[in-house]
Computed example of a mutant assay.
Amino acid sequence: MAKEFFERHKQPWKADEAGQLRILAAKGKGLKEIAKAIGRSEEST
């Protein structure tokens, strides 16, 4: 299985991304779903 490629690898977090992360986590979303919505790897998230 091929690894996914992430454009944002090792990039600093922006304020809007961090806010979106907090909102999605508060809604009980899973790690995979949050990472996909933000456009980052699960490891970064």
Rank of each mutant, 00 (worst) to 15 (best):
F5Y: 14
K10E: 12
Q20G: 01
E42L: 02
I23N: 09
T45A: 11
H9Y: 08
R22T: 07
A37R: 03
R8C: 11
R40N: 05
R8W: 04
G39T: 05
F5V: 13
K14I: 11
Q11P: 02
E4S: 08
G28R: 08
L24Y: 14
E4I: 12
K29M: 11
A37H: 07
A37D: 06
F6W: 14
E33A: 07
E43C: 09
G19P: 07
K32V: 04
E7T: 10
I38D: 03
K10P: 01
I34P: 00
E43P: 02
L21C: 07
L21I: 04
K3E: 12
E43G: 06
P12H: 01
M1S: 14
M1F: 07
K3M: 07
E7D: 14
A18R: 15
E17M: 12
A2M: 11
W13M: 03
E43K: 13
A26G: 12
M1I: 02
Q20F: 04
A25M: 12
K10M: 13
T45I: 15
I34R: 00
W13S: 04
G19N: 15
R40P: 07
R40I: 01
K36I: 04
K32G: 00
K29G: 03
K14S: 15
A37P: 12
G19K: 14
G19Y: 01
G30M: 08
K27N: 14
I23A: 10
E17K: 08
I23S: 14
R40A: 11
G30F: 04
E4V: 13
R22G: 09
E42A: 03
K3H: 12
K3P: 08
G28K: 00
H9F: 08
K3Y: 11
P12N: 08
D16G: 05
I34H: 00
E33K: 12
G30E: 13
E33C: 02
Q20R: 00
E33Q: 01
E7F: 06
I34F: 00
K14D: 09
E7H: 03
M1H: 03
A15I: 10
A2Q: 13
K32W: 00
A15V: 03
